[in-house]
């Protein structure tokens, strides 16, 4: 805590699967009240980053062409996004894998499948625990 953290409003979700984007929109916009920008690929995310300026980025791990980790690396290279908190979402969550993702600079990992009714709470929790 210490310094006053701005409330979380703008979230970017990078996810190749249309169904999951649709559910996440419901979960984060309708249920959570966030402003959400969904991107269907890593490239799409990199394009939208400067305009949308998310406070937090959710990344699917397994995506065709540019996967989650490479997308995160590319995001980190962009000026102004070196420290934007990123969270991976993945179906594979074994402890060593989580460690790997955290080492890439993610602040947390949300296991898939997620529950659409509680996803927002989980994200707020992550946001509130940032130091």
């Amino acid at each position: 805590m210490g310094e006053s953290v701005a409330p979380l409003e703008k979230i970017m979700l990078v996810e190749d699967e249309e169904d999951i984007r649709a559910v996440a929109e419901l979960a984060l916009e309708a249920v959570g009240g966030f402003t959400l920008k969904t991107c269907h690929s890593g490239a799409n995310a990199l394009e939208s980053l400067d305009v949308f300026r998310p406070q937090l980025i959710l990344l699917d791990v397994m995506m065709p062409s540019m996967d989650g980790p490479s997308t995160l690396r590319a995001i980190r290279d962009k000026p102004g996004f070196a420290n934007t908190p990123a969270v991976f979402m993945t179906a594979k969550v074994q402890p060593d894998e989580v460690k790997g993702y955290l080492a890439l600079g993610a602040v947390d990992v949300i296991p898939k499948p997620f529950d659409p009714m509680t996803l927002s709470d989980r994200i707020r929790e992550i946001w509130d625990n940032l130091d």
Partner: peptide, 20 residues
Amino acid sequence: YQVLHRLAGSAGTFGFRALG
């Protein structure tokens, strides 16, 4: 493999946990 991975990750979100 990719299709199964996708199902594994998404089915539970829609309530099909056994499928996932």
